[in-house]
Nucleic acid binder design. Structure first.
Length: 474
RNA sequence: GGCCUCAUCGUCUAACGGUUAGGACACCACCCUUUCAAGGUGGUAACACGGGUUCGAUUCCCGUUGGGGCUACCA
């Protein structure tokens, strides 16, 4: 068998959604594993909704994810002549026919359908037209579409993921394959392209299952060999409904902006609807490629669990050397308005990287260390202070007093810890109750590196000033 | 409505007729840290329902129920 040829074929009518990204990833994993070729094809035949900006976003998203393609991007819109030729070939061989019905007539017929518009199926009235009647209309310049004559037979295939799926041709409509204006309809364009590109494996979303019998009929009418079809399940929102904008972030770019790193996203997406069959979860790219198989893909739709994605991202972050994410953190800090002035961020990153789940969160924690004056007092910090209650102010007073007695020369983690400890003991409160208010005052957050280390790094003057300011607000 | 499809903890999943139904996220408890996290240990939690087939069904078959997809001169 020759090496597999796969394709990912998004339409540039929106951003790259996680569902599409996962489909692309599965195609890529299979291609990598089998030594196959992955082709990127932009399906832009819907000119009204397609934009170059969307195309670019999709390309960027795939690149960010690490899903590389071997050929393309090809643009479907460029192959109009071939699509048209295929339609005309079907017309010549009697596998398709001209339909002169207008949209208005069809709409009226739909409405008049006994079971309502939903049960309507084209009645083939134009297929019954005599040759003379057809010639007459063509000569008169009457506009027409080309309809495919759906064969009345069983259409079935062995799906790489679902197993055998079969449809009855009689349940399918005579679909339009070429519009009045000579442009192709999706199902024709896809088949024409997949045949021309010699695609051997069509791995796409579940929502295409009902398109597949139509496309198979088209392959057969065109006399082309069938590829392997595999339909991957949908991705759902937390409410079990198809993932959409109202669920919040659905585009790959959204997660990039939130500080998810590509390796974590790739790992998470790969495990959504697929598993290596054992207990592995954190899997490097090479392991993913080695273990992947279409047959192990889940049949059922999966809920996109952002919390687990963030956990996984945190795992990747804490395993990464600080130097490898310094640049990304610097970019996030710039967004936060923190002056870098050529400072070495690595010590700060190392101090907090195991405490953050996203780059954004990591950057915020690095930021308070670099510039405590920007500590997120509001609204998160304010809420925390309120929540901590009256004991909070008392603890802060204690802290100011205790830290104030430390000589500048002894401003190091150990003496600082000792001072706080003494103060807590004297006041009869637990060390944690003495520490946490300082942490919140300095960072506006409940999580940070050890308080005494943080206090040491930030510096005496800044710490005392900061605590006084917060005390004033408490 | 019609056609298609799916069904294991709240979520992601393992199991390919015989298991105390395993792992992960989340949650809870404890340990570690004279502090938050991280980490470690343990715990709560699932085979949708009803019929078959079988010595034996989470697993195979049928049905019910409940999801999802499609049903355009969109893709």
């Amino acid at each position: 068998m020759t090496s597999p040829r796969l394709r990912f074929a998004p339409s540039p009518t929106g951003y790259l959604h996680v569902g599409g990204a996962r489909t692309a990833l599965f195609n890529w994993l299979y291609a990598q594993q089998s030594g196959g070729t992955l082709i990127l094809r932009i399906e832009d035949t819907d000119q009204a909704r397609s934009t170059d900006a969307h195309t670019q976003v999709i390309l960027d998203g795939l690149t960010w994810l690490g899903v590389t393609w071997d050929e393309g991007p090809y643009f479907q819109g460029a192959d109009g002549p071939r699509h048209r030729a295929d339609a005309e070939r079907l017309l010549r061989t009697g596998k398709a026919y001209r339909c002169f019905c207008t949209k208005e007539e069809l709409e009226a017929a739909r409405q008049a359908s006994p079971g309502g518009a939903d049960t309507y199926k084209y009645d083939r009235r134009c297929h019954r037209l005599s040759a003379e009647a057809i010639d007459q209309r063509v000569l008169a310049g009457t506009p027409f579409v080309i309809r495919f004559l759906m064969p009345d037979e069983e259409i079935a295939w062995d799906d790489a993921i679902h197993g055998r799926i079969s449809f009855q041709g009689r349940d399918l409509d005579d679909l339009v394959i070429l519009r009045t204006n000579g442009t192709p309809i999706y199902n024709l364009a896809v088949v024409s392209d997949d045949v021309a590109m010699r695609i051997t494996h069509v791995i796409r979303g579940d929502d295409h299952i009902s398109n597949t019998p139509k496309q198979i009929a088209l392959y057969q009418a065109l006399g082309a060999p069938l590829p392997v079809f595999g339909h991957v399940p949908m991705i759902l929102g937390p409410d079990g409904k198809k993932l959409s904008k109202r669920h919040g972030a659905t585009a790959v770019g959204d997660y990039q902006a939130q500080g998810i790193i590509p390796a974590a996203m790739r790992n998470f997406l790969a495990l959504l609807g697929w598993s290596p069959g054992d207990d592995r979860e954190i899997m490097p790219e090479a392991d993913l490629i080695a273990a992947f198989s279409l047959g192990a893909i889940q049949k059922k739709a999966a809920v996109f669990d952002v919390t687990k994605l963030e956990w996984m991202n945190g795992q990747y972050l804490s395993a990464l050397p600080a130097a490898s994410i310094e640049g990304l953190i610097a970019a996030h800090l710039a967004d936060l308005g923190v002056a870098l002035a050529g400072r070495d961020l690595r010590p700060a990153i190392d101090a907090v990287k195991s405490r953050a789940r996203t780059l954004t969160q990591l950057a915020e924690r690095v930021a308070v260390r670099l510039d405590p004056s920007r500590a997120a007092l509001e609204p998160k910090g304010e809420a925390l202070i309120t929540k901590m209650g009256p004991a909070y102010a008392a603890s802060l007073r204690l802290a100011i007093e205790a830290l104030g007695t430390i000589p500048d020369a002894e401003w190091h983690p150990e003496p600082i810890l000792a001072a706080i400890k003494r103060s807590a003991e004297a006041a009869g409160i637990k060390l944690g109750d003495a520490m946490q208010p300082i942490r919140v005052a300095l960072t506006g957050d409940t999580v940070s590196e050890p308080v005494n280390e943080l206090v040491a790094v930030v510096g005496k003057a800044t710490v005392l000033a900061r605590l006084a300011v917060v005390l004033g607000r408490a």
